[in-house]
């Protein structure tokens, strides 16, 4: 099974002749099916837009897919932002901190390690690569529980560090960086820089990082979404509401809807506020997502 690494090949040929021969009937059927599937993926997001614009009474008395007569979106949003001294904004900033800082550093560390494993021949490099590869297959939730025990012994539970430190390691990122460096970093270029008297670490920063950029973007995005979406680790580690990321915070609001119906509006408004920027980010970023994910995956 070869042909996985050639990413730069031309895509499916769409010649004018082919399109006309297949006819427009097929286009209509295929596009029709794709539209129906789109409805499935967009319905929950549409629902939350509608729900966040209603009062709590309307939420239960009017049809869920139709806007009600009174449009309360901005009142609801204001309430989300101001409730409990703006705790929502704090959760959002916490998420940005965990995911942004975590994925940036994780990418840099994975790049350095992947580059080292690819560029230098030294004893033990295959052992290291093998062990880290095993880490890719270990379920993240399987390490969260023992991590909690470890962190509680050194008194680090319920701090920013308890969520941030585990986010700095990406075995999958190292795997991708090594594969990508193997395929792209030219050893003679490294040798040439060496002859010019450039230090080894500086060669990595000036030559290695630049060539590996496409893979780094993939690793960064992968880690960013991974941390942003993580729930189990912060749930296990954090008890202080002020340290919560957005996932934990919104679930905290939702869990109170049973007793206090006004939390329905806070929850739907909060979900809307946090889903919209992410949805836009995904739509913008999805074209960067292809590089390297399947390269050398399973041979």
């Amino acid at each position: 099974m070869s042909g996985t690494a050639e990413q730069a090949q031309p895509t499916v040929h769409r010649t004018a002749e082919e399109v006309s021969r297949r006819g427009s009937a097929q286009t209509i059927i295929v596009t029709g099916i794709l539209v129906i599937v789109t409805l499935y993926f967009l319905v929950p997001v549409y629902w939350v837009v509608v729900a966040a614009s209603k009062s709590t009474d309307d939420l239960f008395s009017t049809h869920g897919f139709l806007f009600s007569a009174s449009f309360q979106l901005f009142e609801n949003i204001t309430q989300v932002l101001s409730f409990d001294n703006g705790i929502f904004i704090r959760w959002l900033l916490n998420s940005v901190l965990y995911a942004g800082v975590g994925s940036l550093i994780a990418t840099y560390f994975a790049a350095a390690a992947g580059y080292a494993l690819s560029t230098y021949a030294f004893r033990g490099r295959n052992v290291i690569f093998g062990i880290v590869l095993g880490g890719v297959l270990v379920p993240g939730t399987a390490t969260a529980l023992p991590l909690f025990l470890l962190f509680s012994q050194i008194g680090m539970v319920n701090t920013y560090w308890s969520v941030l430190i585990p986010s700095l390691v990406s075995p999958f990122g190292l795997f991708l960086c090594r594969i990508y460096a193997d395929a792209t970093v030219d050893k003679s270029l490294v040798e040439a820089a060496r002859i010019d008297g450039v230090g080894e670490i500086k060669i990595f920063h000036t030559v290695g990082l630049r060539i590996m950029t496409p893979a780094l973007v993939t690793v960064f995005l992968f880690q960013l979404v991974g941390i942003w979406n993580n729930y189990f680790l912060p749930l296990v580690m954090l008890t202080d509401e002020g340290l919560f990321p957005i996932t934990l915070g919104l679930n905290h609001w939702r869990s109170q809807t049973d007793r206090l119906p006004e939390f329905y509006e806070l929850t739907t408004g909060g979900v809307l506020l946090s889903v919209i920027p992410l949805a836009i980010a995904m739509i913008v970023l999805q074209r960067f997502w292809r590089g390297g994910l399947t390269e050398g995956a399973v041979k």
Binding site: V37, T38, F41, L42, P44, V45, W47, V48, V225, W228, N229, N230, Y231, I246, T247, L248, L250, N251, R254, T267, V271, S274, V275, L278, A279, A281, M282, I283, Q286, W289
Partner: peptide, 16 residues
């Protein structure tokens, strides 16, 4: 459109 839900955390998807 199909990729968009991947950016919605499992917790928020479940709430929705």
């Amino acid at each position: 459109a199909y990729f968009m839900p991947y950016g919605v955390p499992g917790v928020l998807a479940t709430i929705l």
